[in-house]
Amino acid sequence: MSAVKVAFVGKGGSGKTTLAALFARHLAARCLPVLAIDADINQHLGAALGRDADTPPPVKPLGEHLLTIKDYLRGDNPRITSADRMVKTTPPGRGSRLLRVIEDNPIYAACVRDVGGVRLAVTGEFAAEDLGVACYHSKVGAVELLLNHMLDGPGEYVMVDMTAGADSFASGLFTRFDRTVLVCEPTVRSVGVYRQYASYARDFRVALSVVGNKIEDASDVEFLREHIGGDLLTWFSRSGYVRRAERGTVCPLAELEPANQAALAQLAEAVDDTVQDWAAFTRWAHEFHRRNAAAWANERAGADLTDQIDPEFRMGAQAVSEPTVVGC
């Protein structure tokens, strides 16, 4: 069984968050270590996992603890002189603290709570004071830092509910995942989002699986097969269980329709078959850090932040045996 970082993406209204919650609950029900992160501009994953919609979120947003996150992750890395010098793309190096999916650390203590049996962190909502002055991608910078430093081991999962559409390609965050699950309705608009995402993903060798949703009959499946082809992994039918959940009643997972339970198991099997490519993970981390440094970060910092790249460090199993890596 592999360790996997998996993203859920799709057109708004496709059921992306609903299926992400079902997947996270499926893993937790198997007693597997899973960390779920809500990185959507609409913060609904907690409710989909079973939190009462009228109850305030039980976790503090990651964005409210960004300095704490940076200071912890930089550890004793001599290339990063202060937390203020870290940006969202700063990669780990020798001396950095690496994260495990389940461990005790100040980031998890502040920002991770159990919701419906799933450990959840959230980016935080796009607030009124952000309108016109901030980009939502600033909210997910903490997620990118966490994933850059996440050394997930066999049988461990990090699942991120991403913002709708192809917006994740506005940063290098899409390269942080071992597999991306695109939720697609049998509609022209939803297939259009798939085509846009697939065209971008192909250039970066992103492992992409498409899951059909809101399927009513065989013609819906044939429509998806015609337009998606081999990327179509499985599909979920219209569901009374899901409809009740969307109305605020999250029932035990055993009550999900058998056909949809089978689809969930098929998705989990595909995720488990994913092979992590730590060399590519490291290579793209360095590449997007260089791009961001050149585009804006060097000017903001008044220094060349590409010096933060440690060419001798590689993420992967070997990282835990390097004596200069702190906190693994």
Rank of each mutant, 00 (worst) to 15 (best):
Ser190Arg: 02
Pro78Leu: 12
Phe313Arg: 03
Ala270Trp: 12
Ala134Ser: 15
Gly10Asp: 10
Asp84Glu: 15
Ala53Arg: 14
Thr17Ala: 09
Lys70Ser: 00
Phe177Leu: 09
Ala207Lys: 10
Leu98Thr: 06
Leu73Glu: 02
Ala293Gly: 14
Ser239Tyr: 01
Ala317Pro: 02
His149Met: 12
Leu253Asn: 03
Leu173Trp: 02
Asn260Phe: 02
Lys60Tyr: 11
Leu256Phe: 04
Gly132Val: 08
Pro323Leu: 10
Ala7Leu: 04
Glu156Lys: 09
Gly116Val: 07
Gly117Asn: 05
Leu256Ser: 00
Leu151Glu: 09
Leu66His: 07
Tyr200Ala: 09
Gly212Glu: 02
Asn213Lys: 00
Tyr194Ser: 09
Gly212Phe: 01
Trp278Glu: 03
Asp304Ser: 11
Asp203Cys: 07
Leu120His: 06
Ser168Met: 15
Ala7Gln: 01
Val122Ser: 06
Thr306Asn: 09
Pro33Asn: 08
Ala294Ile: 10
Ala201Asn: 02
Phe169Cys: 06
Ala293Val: 12
Pro78Ala: 07
Thr187Gly: 14
Leu99Asp: 01
Glu103Gln: 14
Gly192Arg: 00
Ala279Arg: 10
Phe169Gly: 02
Tyr72Met: 05
Arg30Gly: 12
His26Lys: 15
Val221His: 02
Arg283Leu: 13
Arg176Cys: 05
Pro91Lys: 06
Ala259Asn: 13
Gly124Thr: 05
Asp273Gly: 15
Ala48Arg: 00
Leu99Met: 09
Asp203Glu: 13
Ala48Met: 07
Leu99His: 03
His289Lys: 08
Val325Asp: 09
His149Arg: 13
Arg100Ser: 13
Ile80Val: 15
Val34Asp: 00
Ala121Met: 14
Leu264Cys: 11
Arg179Gly: 01
Arg100Gly: 11
Tyr108Trp: 10
Ile41Glu: 13
Gln261Asn: 04
Ala293Lys: 00
Asp220Thr: 04
